[in-house]
């Protein structure tokens, strides 16, 4: 049994030591906003924040998150108000199929926490998530818009 704290709420889960956080979120807690894309830390679809830092949850054992604050896409809103990054994503109409976008948004939130006014080069360096639909132009514009908001 381990206890992990997701979006402020503690959850006691009975899982193996090595079970990645991604699958605990998706299949044990049924929080499916965090996505599976590759399982090998290569695509970023599974990005969540652990103590504010972006983490590829497919390759991060849930046991390592014990005692830390996990934030997922479901936890970005405050009340009914979307996070400014989510709002910018809507304003720029960034998602196409949308599947990568939870991870993209989490990576962007983490970037903006670190660098509130990122340059294009900083966006290139931090945003290494794959979008197979190719929505990069809209994502870049949305990050700049959120930085101004």
């Amino acid at each position: 049994m381990i206890t992990i704290t997701v979006n402020g709420a503690p959850h006691e889960v009975d899982v193996e030591e090595g079970m990645p956080l991604l699958w605990v979120l998706r299949d044990v807690l049924n929080m499916t906003g965090t996505k599976y894309g590759c399982g090998v830390a290569a695509c970023g679809a599974c990005t969540v924040m652990v103590d504010g830092a972006p983490v590829r949850s497919c390759s991060f054992p849930a046991a390592l998150a014990v005692g830390k604050a996990i934030t997922t896409i479901e936890g970005l809103k405050s009340g009914e108000t979307l996070h400014k990054v989510q709002q910018a994503w809507i304003a720029e109409q960034a998602p196409q199929c949308g599947y990568c976008q939870s991870g993209q948004i989490m990576a962007a939130v983490a970037l903006l926490n670190e660098k509130p006014q990122p340059t294009d080069a900083e966006i290139d360096a931090a945003m290494t998530n794959i979008c197979r639909c190719g929505s990069y132009a809209q994502i870049r514009a949305a990050i700049h818009a959120a930085a101004k908001a």
């Binding site: 929080m31 906003g33 965090t34 479901e74 979307l82 960034a94 998602p95 949308g98």
Partner: peptide, 12 residues
């Protein structure tokens, strides 16, 4: 379809 794709609620 976009609002459900920014808050994790879209069901694939």
């Amino acid at each position: 379809d976009i609002p459900a794709k920014v808050d994790g609620s879209a069901k694939y």
